[in-house]
Amino acid sequence: MAESAARHVVLMFERISEAIDAAQDRLSELDGVIGDADHGITMALGFHSVCAEFGRPGQHLSTASEVLDKAATTFLEAAGASTGPLYASAFRRASERLAGVERLDAAAVTAMLQGIAAGIGERGKAQRGDKTMLDAWLPAAEAGARAVACGLEGQAYWQEVIAAGEHGANATRSMVAMKGRAARAGQRSLGHIDPGAASTVIILQAMAEAMAEEVSTNPG
């Protein structure tokens, strides 16, 4: 079971990487409006390296927690920028929350989402409403917890999570950036969606896609 959970998380990173690749230009364009236009590039770079690391021969990661921990280390050194420390801390916290978890059910996935939100919050010292990726991650994690409480699983679960993430990301349009480079754009950041929050929605969608897939449990 643990092996299957680990494979699901690896698959999750692959799907995220593909989805970020596809959206790279759009993300950089969003960033160009209020930041320095590199968000798509940095994200793509970070996830490419994570996937490449998983593909390295001799790499044996047997639990979801180990996979996330490896992703944290790799993402940090590959991405740099602000995204590096933020997602590295996110995956590190998620890894801790999933320690000992063998099955990626809705409760485990929620723990992962909460870990991600917590890691980003600690590292970036942002608050809700600061117009950052946290404005999408926090509501998504909270929606996950509510969905678990209501007994939702699978597609129904992810619908709730993604809707909350999307709503949060869209809400960044009416926020003034308080953190990161966009903060210097001051009021001119108004009306523009935060690129970090936009890429969060893409990640959530890719997560949902990966979790719905079957994975082979054959080694290799």
Binding site: D36, A37, D38, I41, T42, L45, L76, E77, A78, A79, G80, A81, S82, G84, P85
Partner: peptide, 11 residues
């Protein structure tokens, strides 16, 4: 030295 317009990572 980081990537273009991006901070270098810690290492």
């Amino acid at each position: 030295v980081g990537n273009i317009f991006s901070s270098p990572p810690p290492n």
